[in-house]
Design a binder for these strands. Structure first.
Length: 514
RNA sequence: GUCCCCAUAGCUCAACGGAUAGAGCGCAGCCCUGCGAAGGCUGAAAUGAUGGUUCGAUUCCCUCUGGGGACACCA
């Protein structure tokens, strides 16, 4: 990765010149007149940028320029050609970076209670988690996708009541009516449990499949109780003297770990709270060897962060081993008005409906393109209307165009073999720009594995597609000039590979025809 | 009341404290008798409001306005 090399070069130069260990930051300027990479190190150190510029020599770079205090680097063509060959060689493996060193990471997402269908909000977190796991695996982590099924406790009882249709019913919707016909029983617990199983198997799992997500583990809450893991964890907390009794309840001293108040583990009525089972669950994850935990939660779980981080610390995790990604909630707009989505009122848009209406690729791209902090107001009618204009097609179109050209080669009158193309023939700005765009996929993956900002991927896919479309407009691939044709063919093949890898990370299909 | 998040072009969204704030859709135009026009090119169009820190602020801090969320012996 050229970025790393440049940082190293700059650091060495700064050290030699000023005997200082500089914190070097490097960026890719938006405007290409400022080079391919650029650093502000001279301004930070308050030194003459020309000194630094002239101290840096490398065959990676064609030239170094100084403008407005920045030191700007222009990548050498030799390097571009070398990297292009690398892409063609590595194919679907191109983009891998060594960052995780095989570290086991657990990515837990969706984990919606089995009390109803998955809705838009679950879709948002679901796509994010799925893609994040893809990215982490590309960055040499060993990421597993996990869905925690809360199939015990209060909400299952409420589901039971709902299926009974008695006074304490809370959930509404067509699926409850279906369950009423299907499930008969005499105890609320029994009916609730059976209904939850039906919902999990016949609604949630099919939805998840439809979303293109494949969980490694479906972890059932009841399993914790079978092994009495909750009691064991409570004993452990007692041994560590992190609990106390007050007002008839048992409290966890989460304030010792940064929470703003202590939290109840066992209520005065003897029932355990969710924190108790969640702590047992954390212990369980620790025992399974996960070195890092990532949770993706809706913004409504914000208040739960500190106590879980505290509990994780007690269960063996260090600060920084637990990352919680808060997705802002999706609000629903219908007929220009916001309506409250709730499984309790029966008003919601399911993820199935969305995928049926706009297609999986458009749905994924739509959600992935937004940062987790963005507050999303979702209008299904608007989404339907816009789905044909979804930028995902811009990217897929680039892919289909490439495939179309490649397939033309076989019935071409020109004898174009792609064995040893002379890539140095690629000289036009649009060609070089395209190569520069191709070779940053590893950077994209590295950055995203570090900061979890998955919206970087659709952004990159669009940039890459744009570079290709501009290349296509200006350069004919198949022509009388056999040598040039070979070189360009290699270039579009590399583009195809990188596009496919990028779309693959997003879980979006790469159609050869559309 | 306390805490978290958000406010960028007509609309939906981007932008590690950096250079001329980027895209898509929409709008006004131009480009197919050569590999797919679901494309390319040109143009109009934006940082909610006051201060502050900084060589430099959409980004960090204060205040204000307007939204969303959280503050349980709920999940």
């Amino acid at each position: 990765m050229i970025r790393k090399e440049l940082v190293k070069l700059i650091k060495e130069a700064a050290k030699k010149l000023y005997k200082e260990e500089a914190e070097v930051r490097i960026e890719r300027p938006e405007n290409s007149v400022f080079g391919d990479y650029s650093t502000n190190v001279a301004m930070v150190l308050n030194k003459n940028p020309n000194e630094i510029a002239s101290a840096i020599k490398s065959d990676l770079i064609e030239r170094v320029e100084v403008k407005n205090g920045f030191v700007n680097f222009f990548i050498s063509k030799d390097y571009l050609v070398k990297e292009l060959k690398e892409i063609l060689k590595e194919k679907e493996k191109f983009g891998q970076v060594r960052l995780g060193k095989g570290k086991k990471v657990n990515v837990e997402f969706i984990s919606a209670n089995p009390t109803g269908p998955l809705t838009l909000g679950n879709g948002r977190g679901g796509f994010c988690g799925d893609v994040l796991a893809n990215v982490l695996n590309r960055a040499d982590f060993k990421a597993e996708r996990e869905y925690y099924v809360n199939d015990a406790g209060e909400q299952i009882r409420k589901l039971g009541h709902s299926v009974f249709g008695d006074q304490e019913a809370v959930y509404q919707g067509p699926y409850i009516e279906e369950l009423k016909k299907k499930i008969k029983g005499n105890s609320v617990e029994d009916v609730g449990k059976r209904a939850a199983k039906v919902i999990l198997e016949e609604m949630i799992k099919p939805s998840v499949r439809k979303m293109g997500i494949d969980f490694d583990v479906w972890f059932s809450e009841s399993n914790l109780y079978k092994e009495k893991e909750d009691d064991k964890v409570l004993n452990l907390l007692k041994e560590k003297k992190l609990v106390y009794e007050s007002e008839g309840a048992l409290w966890f001293e989460s304030t010792k770990f940064g929470d703003d108040k202590d939290r109840v583990l066992i209520k005065a009525d003897g029932e355990k709270t969710y924190l108790a089972s969640d702590t047992a669950y954390l212990k369980n994850k620790f025992k399974r060897g996960f070195k890092k935990l990532i949770f993706i939660w809706g913004a409504d779980h914000y208040g739960y962060i500190n106590r879980i981080k505290g509990a994780a610390e007690v269960m063996g995790y260090k600060k920084g081993d637990v990352d919680i990604i808060i997705m802002q909630l999706v609000r629903l707009i219908q007929g220009g008005q916001e309506v409250k989505m709730s499984k309790r009122t029966g008003i919601y848009v399911t993820i199935d409906e969305l995928i049926d209406e706009v297609g999986l690729d458009a749905a994924r791209f739509f959600f992935l393109a937004r940062g987790n902090d963005s507050h999303l107001a979702f209008d299904l009618d608007l989404a339907k209307e816009q789905s044909e204009k979804n930028p995902v097609y811009y990217v897929q179109y680039a892919y289909a165009r490439i495939c179309s050209i490649i397939s033309k080669i076989s019935n071409s009158k020109f004898k174009i073999q792609n064995k040893f193309p002379d890539l140095k023939l690629l000289n036009k700005p649009v060609e070089l720009d395209l190569i520069k765009q191709l070779i940053i996929l590893p950077e994209i993956i590295e950055d995203t594995a570090k900061d979890y900002q998955v919206q970087r991927l659709p952004q990159y896919a669009l940039d890459l597609a744009s570079s290709f479309h501009r290349f296509y407009q200006e350069c004919r691939v198949i022509s009388e000039d056999i040598k040039l044709s070979q070189a360009r063919l290699a270039l579009i093949e590399a583009t195809r590979i990188v596009l496919k890898n990028t779309l693959g990370l997003m879980g979006v299909s790469a159609p050869e025809k559309m």
